[in-house]
Amino acid sequence: MADGHGAWGWGYLPIFLLLFWATWLTRGAFLLFGEKVRLPQSVQTWLRYAPAAALGALVAPDLFLAGGAVTFKPELVAAVVVMVTAAFWRNPWAPFALGMLTLVALQNAFGG
């Protein structure tokens, strides 16, 4: 954790101010800097793949790694529950409720 970061700290604020630009400039790419430019189809395809690439990279370590080594974790089981729930049940609360329930139950059962 960042130095000097207390319970009521503001230590991360500069980071959030920088991240503001990462959202505002992407959403504003064409609203702010000109609407005449057309995106070629190939560029659109790459832009469409970017979230899938980033989400895969960000989620995987939490599901497969413990202390830097590949481990079978309750998080993986909970993740499968989340994805199946989200795919077949439109209720927006269900993945959160069932995913947390699965993880807490497994951690209690196996002393996680």
Binding site: A22, L31, L47, L55
Partner: peptide, 20 residues
């Protein structure tokens, strides 16, 4: 951190172009 946020946000560039 910034690059990760920007990559996750790249889909907004498509929105931006489509809604401009």
């Amino acid at each position: 951190v910034w690059l990760t946020a920007a990559v996750l946000n790249l889909r907004f560039v498509i929105y931006s172009a489509a809604i401009s």
